[in-house]
Design a protein around this nucleic acid. Structure first.
Length: 489
RNA sequence: CGGGGUGUAGCGUAGCCCGGUAUCGCGCCACAUUUGGGAUGUGGAGGUCGUAGGUUCGAAUCCUGCCACCCCGACCA
């Protein structure tokens, strides 16, 4: 492990890339654009999965699994959908290799009759399946989720934020009425928002995408948008109301109570390993990761400070008891008793890895019945009575979780600016970044022009934002509501 | 996919312009002394110089193709 991380203030991108690698979250692989998620990074993802999965189950969803490969013809069934994904699909054309002098080559005789697409998302294969699952209103609603990998052949990739292959979950539901499907869409957006705020400790704006930004094939795309420390926005989750688009494309109809035959209404929603990027960029600092306790694979690390076997034995005895007590309270504890590293090195290493709480115990503490407790978020150190730790640490973890949330919340508040003129708009984007609240005339033309001139896009039309009469900062046309602009990931 | 940059030991690098078999730091291994914020000393191991070809008596160095990564654009979660 080499020491030192680039400073956020000097090169934010480099800081992010180095941090992800040095903290042991992920690294680039032999395959262009694809990453290896390392054990420590995957442990965080597993925690996210577990929490989200419980939330999905609690809202009535069940998991299932659909194939990685999608017949090429399926993609073309829904016009907008094809257009959205066609440019970034991996295609399987053959099913066999044959040996040659210098290795293997694709066997030209083993050409697939119909080529297969590696799923960029699963709407088409799932809706083609739903056709046979749905006949009657009694089969509805259909509430299914799958945890899977998907492939989008991206030209420019970054660890977690945009990779050619990524892990995600995609929920796909079918309903008897539009109202119910819309309620589902909003509900799942709210599940995501709650997850982001309570677990990632990332405050998010709940909103609707503009037609230009919404999912290909959807009638409406709801989203949650977070703000990163460099002032750029990051879309952390999306939930789509698909209307009857896919039902029509795949002929999914149901018999209604009164004997009619209607197309079902659909939704789809997903979050991906991109959340890992959000987690890193929302809280971490120049010393390394800062993990919210609720997602940290290791919540407490205990470092012994000793001279000789005898002292270590004495310390270990007390520490192992403490470890057990904390674990009984559901806290994950690592006792770093490696004899090969010195305490200072361990401190730095666990800070890099973002462990929320560190406890150090040395000879002095043994004599005094104390321990040194350091919190990662503020780097404050304090001396506590050893016997109080089983109560002190759980409370401290809660406090850290809250503190990093409010820090992120305050940052967002400070970096959300209302502007009324285009000059101001450009100035804010250049000098301070963040969300910019401005009036917009509702046309894609204006949106496009602003994007071209400033690189900023409309992140969303916030659900909670009040109606307010105003005029578009660019065209002067009337507007009833401010929308969120930002430069985005 | 377009423009720019980079690729030398596990990591970070010097050398490249001006061709002669590779520098330094961290890390690694051994031993000793150490251990309350990234230890110190001594000794040691580790290299197809991204890759394939070309020029040359000789290539890390010059030329060409390819690959990967980074930055900027277009596209996108």
């Amino acid at each position: 492990m080499s020491k030192g991380l680039p400073k956020r203030s000097e090169d934010y991108s480099l800081w992010y890339n180095e941090l992800v690698k040095k903290a042991g979250l992920a690294e680039n692989s032999a395959v262009r654009g694809c990453m290896v998620i390392k054990p420590y990074g995957y442990a965080i993802w597993e925690r996210m999965q577990r929490v989200l999965d419980d939330m999905f189950k609690a809202t009535g969803h069940s998991n299932a699994y659909f194939p990685l490969f999608i017949p090429k013809s399926y993609l073309s069934r829904e016009a907008d959908h094809v257009e959205g994904f066609a440019k970034e699909c991996a295609v399987v054309t053959h099913y066999r290799l044959k040996a040659t002098e210098d290795g293997v080559t694709v066997d030209p005789d083993a050409k697939l009759e119909e080529e297969l697409i590696v799923r960029p998302t699963s709407e088409t294969i799932i809706w083609s399946t739903y056709k046979s699952w749905v006949q009657s209103y009694r089969d509805l609603p259909l509430l299914v989720n799958q945890w899977a990998n998907v492939v989008r052949w991206e030209m420019r990739t970054r660890l977690f934020l945009r990779t050619a292959e990524f892990l995600w979950q995609e929920g796909h539901t079918a309903h008897a009425t539009a109202e119910e499907a819309i309620a589902e869409t909003k509900q799942m957006m709210e599940v995501y928002a709650e997850f982001a705020e309570k677990y990632i400790a990332l405050p998010v704006v709940r909103g609707v995408k503009t037609p230009k930004e919404r999912f290909a094939g959807a009638l409406d795309t709801y989203c949650i948008e977070g703000l990163m420390q460099d002032g750029k926005a990051l879309q952390a989750g999306t939930s789509h109301f698909l209307g009857q688009n896919f039902a029509k494309a795949f002929d999914v109809k149901f018999a209604t109570k009164d004997g009619g035959l209607e197309y079902v209404w659909g939704t789809s929603w997903g979050v991906s390993t991109r959340l890992m990027g959000a987690l890193v960029m929302a809280h971490s600092d120049d010393e390394g990761l800062v993990l919210p306790p609720k997602l940290a694979p290791i919540q407490v690390v205990i470092v012994p400070i000793y001279k000789g076997e005898e002292q270590l034995a004495q310390i270990s005895e007390k520490v192992l008891k403490l470890k057990k007590e904390l674990e009984a309270k559901g806290i994950s504890v690592k006792y770093d008793n490696r004899d090969t590293e010195r305490p200072g090195f361990k401190f730095a290493e666990w800070e890099l890895k973002g462990v929320p709480v560190r406890v150090a115990i040395g000879n002095r503490d043994l004599e005094n019945g104390t321990a040194e407790v350091a919190r990662r978020d503020t780097k404050e150190k304090s001396t506590q009575q050893f016997d109080s730790l089983t109560d002190y640490i759980p409370a401290l973890l809660d406090e850290i979780q809250e503190n990093i949330y409010s820090k992120a919340f305050n940052f967002r508040e400070e970096h959300t600016t209302k502007v009324d003129t285009y000059e101001e708009f450009k100035e804010v984007l250049e000098t301070k970044g963040g969300f910019v609240l401005a009036h917009w005339d509702g046309t894609s033309e204006t949106e496009e022009r602003i994007k071209e001139e400033t690189k900023a896009t409309i992140r969303c039309i916030a659900l909670e934002s009040p109606e307010e009469d105003g005029v578009d900062m660019l065209t002067g046309k009337p507007s009833k509501q401010r929308v969120y602009f930002a430069k985005a990931y």
